[in-house]
């Protein structure tokens, strides 16, 4: 009897967004009379950073400071349509819609500036600091605020833009059945180290190491926090969260946080993350986004680690102490894999 160390590995390909075509999101961008911009979305920021990332994308495309952009996700009744915040689609789908909308708004802003400066709009550039100037002649300039105000109060233009991102329907090849179900994939690999107590069946997570390929990390700190937090959502799914088993029937199942278990701050382990940036050709500024992938590899990795530690192959989540103990009993005892028995670590 004792505690057995186990290691488990899992690697995944994760499709960004819903497959097979469609999956649209819209964005509307307009300037306010003060020369600042509002991005209207129905895409919800539920803590993953949607507002921050779309704000960055809009500012980059418009050529204005991030501080001059406000992202309004307040109302999905009145805002432009979005499929929603799921399927790891936010950065990719919504980001692309924001780029399209911001490009259109930028073009109007430059036309307004061109009229004020009496130059051709094609000769104008933005400096990202709130100024528009003639390319090669920085002294011939106008602020983005002055350009937007001229459009509003003098020229009668709306500095605004519409954007939508839609994946075309993938046709099925009649001969081969081949199709393109998804436009881009993200990737991850995760190694987890656990201890399994063969008397209590309890699993203690010791360490996680992971590598993620998610296009360009448009906001590296947000990527990191999503990966750190999401891994524990995956771990919670793998080892804790269930409405089963409760006896004698489901009426005795958990209905509150006293009985529906989740890892607490004392249950977490170090998690070493590497992010590999390979900009995606159809991603907004190359971004794909971590999304659900931050939780996914944890589950199979933990199942493999339990098998590695005590030889019990569990194929129903979560991996509760009860399942582990029943598995050990069914196996006639703890059977760590040979590699461990040799004391490889």
């Amino acid at each position: 009897m004792g505690v057995h160390r186990g290691r488990g590995f899992a690697a995944i390909n994760y499709p960004i967004g819903m497959n097979l075509g469609g999956d649209p999101s819209q964005a509307l961008v307009h300037s306010n009379p003060d020369g600042k911009f509002t991005v209207a979305l129905s895409s919800i920021d539920l803590g993953q950073g949607m507002k921050s990332v779309t704000r960055q994308i809009a500012a980059e495309t418009l050529g204005v400071p991030v501080a001059d952009v406000y992202v309004d996700t307040a109302d999905s009744d009145t805002g432009p349509h979005c499929m929603g915040s799921f399927a790891s689609r936010g950065t990719h789908r919504v980001g692309n819609a924001v780029i399209q909308a911001a490009q259109e708004a930028r073009a109007v802003m430059l036309e307004a500036a061109a009229e004020e400066l009496e130059v051709n709009a094609a000769d104008l550039v933005t400096d990202g600091q709130g100024n528009i100037h003639v390319n090669g002649a920085p002294s011939r300039s106008i602020t983005t605020m002055a350009a937007c105000q001229a459009a509003q109060f003098k020229q009668g233009r709306t500095v605004s833009g519409r954007g939508i991102f839609l994946i075309p329907l993938s046709e099925v090849d009649a001969e081969t059945g081949e199709m393109t179900p998804v436009s881009c994939f993200a990737h991850a690999a995760l190694l987890v180290e656990i201890d399994v107590d063969d008397e209590t069946g309890e699993v203690t997570v010791r360490d996680m190491q992971s590598a993620y390929e998610l296009g360009r990390a448009l906001n590296p700190k947000l990527v990191e926090q999503q990966l750190v937090g999401g891994a524990w959502m995956g771990m919670s799914h793998a080892l804790w969260e269930t409405t089963e088993p409760y006896y004698p029937d489901r009426n005795h199942g958990p209905v509150d946080f006293n009985h529906y278990l989740m890892p607490g701050p004392g249950d977490i382990s170090p998690h070493h993350i590497s992010v590999l940036e390979r900009p995606a050709p159809d991603g907004p500024y190359g971004g794909k986004g971590p999304g659900e992938m931050c939780a996914n590899p944890v589950l199979p990795a933990v199942a493999n680690a339990v098998y590695d530690a005590v030889g019990v192959r569990i194929d129903e989540l979560p991996i509760t102490p009860e399942k582990i103990l029943r598995g050990i009993r069914a196996n006639g005892g703890v059977k760590p894999r040979q590699r461990l028995a040799r004391g490889a670590r």
Binding site: Q225, V228, G229, G266, H271
Partner: peptide, 19 residues
């Protein structure tokens, strides 16, 4: 720190950034 926040549930962060 872990003991002090053990009565506070967080769904998003995995606690590490809070600690």
């Amino acid at each position: 720190v872990v003991e002090a926040i053990s009565g506070n549930i967080c769904r998003c962060t995995g606690y590490e950034p809070i600690i």
